[in-house]
């Protein structure tokens, strides 16, 4: 029980009469990297939002780090959202956004001490040069890095990433995966990452959750990416999965 990071039991979420998640039961061990893969509208983001406490499930229970969601501290979870819902007209600097990761509130005047930590973290994700540009002038990929810095800076036990590599250039994508892997091993953190990039799921994850309203399979990548499971998740896939995974696993 103690080595379980997230435990879902018979979890269902309905939007009006539409079922987004159906009877999910799942245990995610601490310190593992889980990739969630599934078609658009499969309920991937919905599942993350349930874990974050943004959506209340209609049925079932969630236990995170042995606690109920309301008992959990905001600092236990780091989150990079898929769709950035920020107000683009809001006057803000990247350092301010990242500082919300540190303090869980919007900063007035940033303390020198906090500012240094923020700038270090931005440098770590390759965004040190962005620190004082207006936030609303950043490109999609730049913004994504700032959000990653915001998630990492609080050193969460659980890192929740919704398509974190979207909009990041090819070299940057390798960088980001390296940063996430390093963070995971340094803090023995649990990482949950939604991705449409099967290859990165295959190479980085300890477990893959194939999701399409129901959990089709939760297993090691080698077993999860079987043609059978994939066609159950996505309907008929056009190509053989062997073509996709010609590379070998890392480490």
């Amino acid at each position: 029980m103690n080595d379980i990071a997230i435990e879902l039991k018979n979890l269902s979420v309905n939007f009006a009469r539409y079922s987004a998640l159906d009877n999910l039961t799942l245990s995610i061990p601490k310190g593992t990297f889980v990739s969630i893969v599934g078609p658009n509208g499969a309920g991937k983001t919905t599942l993350l939002k349930v874990i974050l406490g943004l959506i209340k499930p209609n049925h079932g229970t969630i236990t995170i780090l042995g606690k109920q969601i309301d008992e959990l501290s905001a600092f236990d979870l780091g989150y990079v959202p898929q769709i950035k819902t920020l107000d683009r007209t809001f006057p803000a600097l990247p350092i301010e956004l990242v500082s919300t990761g540190l303090n869980a509130k919007w900063p007035g005047r940033l303390k020198k001490h906090d500012k240094n930590i923020v700038i270090d973290t931005l440098e770590r994700v390759g965004a040190g040069n962005l620190a004082k540009r207006p936030l609303n002038k950043l490109s999609g990929g730049e913004l994504q890095r700032v959000y990653l810095a915001r998630a990492l800076i609080r050193k969460p036990k659980i890192l929740i990433l919704d398509e974190p590599a979207t909009g990041i250039d090819w070299i940057g994508e390798k960088d980001i995966h390296k940063i996430i892997d390093e963070y995971k091993s340094e803090f023995n953190a649990t990482v949950i990452m939604v991705t449409h990039d099967w290859e990165s799921a295959y190479h980085h994850a300890d477990f893959v959750l194939l999701l399409n309203k129901v959990a089709v399979c939760f297993d090691k990548p080698e077993d999860a990416f079987s043609e059978d499971y994939l066609s159950q998740t996505f309907g008929h896939v056009g190509h053989k999965h062997e073509m996709l995974f010609s590379g070998s696993r890392h480490d």
């Binding site: 989150y79 959202p81 950035k84 819902t85 107000d87 919300t100 919007w106």
Partner: peptide
């Protein structure tokens, strides 16, 4: 309140994930 109202004005959902 200022910092919470500000955070919520910036991004309601993100503020929600920080238990505001």
């Amino acid at each position: 309140f200022w910092s919470r109202w500000a955070y919520t004005s910036f991004d309601r959902e993100l503020a929600g994930t920080d238990r505001i």
